[in-house]
Structures are given as C-alpha cells and as structure tokens.
Amino acid sequence: MIDVVQLVFVNLAIALATVVQLSAGLGLGLVGVPLLAAVDPRLLPVPFALSALLMMFGQWRVDSRAVPPGMLLPAAAGVVLGTAAGMALAVVHPGLATRRGYGVVVLLAVVLALAVPRLRPTVPMLAGAGFVSGAMGGISGVHGPLMGLVVAHLPAGAVRGFLGLFWLIAYLAILLIALLAGRLGWEELWLATALLPGIALGVALSGPARRWLHGARLRWAILGIATLGGVSLVAAG
C-alpha cells in the first residue's frame, strides 16, 4: 500500500503534470511518469492511464470545435497499431527498442521542427507520428511529444483539442490491451482512484497557464517539453 507521504507526493506530481498537459496540450506522461515511477512502479502504466481518461476527454471537449477535420483518423489508427506493436515488442524482444532510442527520435524531431517551423500535418505524417508515439507508450509508458511537434504551429485551441483526443485514444488503447492481457484488475482501479485528487487539483490550477500559452509561446513550450522528454528518455536508457 502507498503511505500518506507517498500519496501526497504522487498527487502533487500528477497535479503538476496535469497543469502542463492542459496548458500546452501534452506533457502529462513526460512530467508525471518519472515522478510516479520513483515512488511506486505499480502506478504505471495502467492506473496512470485510467486516472487521466476524464481529464483528457475534457481537454478534447473544450476545444473540439477548433480541430481541423480529417486529422484524427490517421493519427488514431497509427497510435492504436503502434501501441499494440510496442507492447508486443516489449514482451517478445525487449532489447530491440529502448527509451534511449526513442529519446533520440524525439530529439531529431525537435531539430526537424526547428528547421521547418511550419510542419504540415499530412496524413502520412500524422499516421507515422501516431505509430511511433504508440510504440513508445507501449514499451516505455511515455508516448512522447512527436504528435505535438507535428501540430505545434496550429492555433492553440486546435492543438489542445486534437492532442486531448489523441492522448485519450492512446490511453484507451493501453487499457484495452492491458484488459485483454489480464493486467487490469481491482488493484489497478484502486491505485487510479488514489491519483484522482491530484488530477482535480491540476485542473483547478491550469486556467492561468492555459490563457497565457498561445501562438509562439505555445509552440516554444511544446518544443521545450519535447526537448526535455527526449533528454530524459536518453538519460533513462
């Protein structure tokens, strides 16, 4: 069981991650996963994903009308297939893919985003970024910010609305595969419930940051979060 001190820490950690997620459109996993893993690995990935579902749904619903049509299907197909492939790879050949390798991919994507400031979210790019993000999540528990880099130049509402639904689908894919694999039970449900106060606190505190982050600020925030995530994954090995 998690003691009181650990419970307070993990809820403050998930609150911080929620503020980052709701203001920048991404970052819940990059900020929250390392902190939760340091306290209790049982919190990942299933309880973490369960606790975030309602928040991700809300992020999407608030800005859903701002999302350009035609973006969701290729991204969703990519992340579902990538999640299944990543979880299968982690079981069958865990040595074939590492966090360090995915960190390098993320950092290369940051360089590409800086070199080409207005990446176009084409169908192949959305599907490819979705697949790689899903594979990263299936193996390491951190989906990575590749999709955020693809859409970073869009208006803030479109970025947050699209990424909210994208992460929602990604987490649902993890939970479905975990359920089929017998890794979703009462313990995971209880641990997810323990994280909900932190989610609620983060939602309550996210308003000022959300209003401040838009335009160039949002794009640079995404680039900063992506860089931090890439470096963290490389350091984790």
Rank of each mutant, 00 (worst) to 15 (best):
G25S: 01
A181K: 13
P41S: 04
M71G: 06
R219V: 08
V142E: 00
L114M: 07
R61E: 08
A152H: 08
R118H: 12
L149R: 05
I139F: 09
L154V: 11
V46P: 00
G32M: 03
A173D: 04
L36C: 01
A216Q: 15
V150A: 03
L233Y: 08
S64V: 13
L180Y: 09
A66T: 10
G27V: 03
A226T: 04
G103W: 02
G58I: 02
F166W: 07
V80G: 05
W186S: 14
M147G: 11
A84P: 07
G198H: 00
A77P: 06
L165M: 14
A192F: 07
V8G: 07
V80L: 13
A75V: 01
V203S: 14
H214S: 14
A200R: 15
L149V: 10
L96Q: 12
V92F: 05
S133Y: 03
V39T: 11
A221Q: 10
G70W: 03
R100C: 09
T18K: 10
V142G: 01
S51F: 07
W167N: 15
L154P: 11
R118T: 02
G230K: 00
A52C: 09
I169R: 15
A173I: 07
L196D: 02
R118S: 08
V91L: 15
V116F: 14
G82V: 01
L12F: 05
R210P: 10
A192Q: 02
V123D: 11
V10R: 10
P69W: 11
G70V: 13
A235S: 03
S64G: 08
G103L: 04
P197C: 12
A156T: 09
V19S: 12
R183S: 13
L81Q: 08
A13Y: 07
V33C: 02
V80K: 11
A152Y: 08
L50K: 10
E188S: 07
M55V: 07
A209Q: 06
L12W: 02
V111S: 05
Y171S: 10
G82R: 01
G164T: 00
L168R: 05
A173N: 04
S140R: 00
P47C: 08
R61K: 15
G185M: 13
R100M: 10
L12Q: 01
E188W: 03
G58V: 00
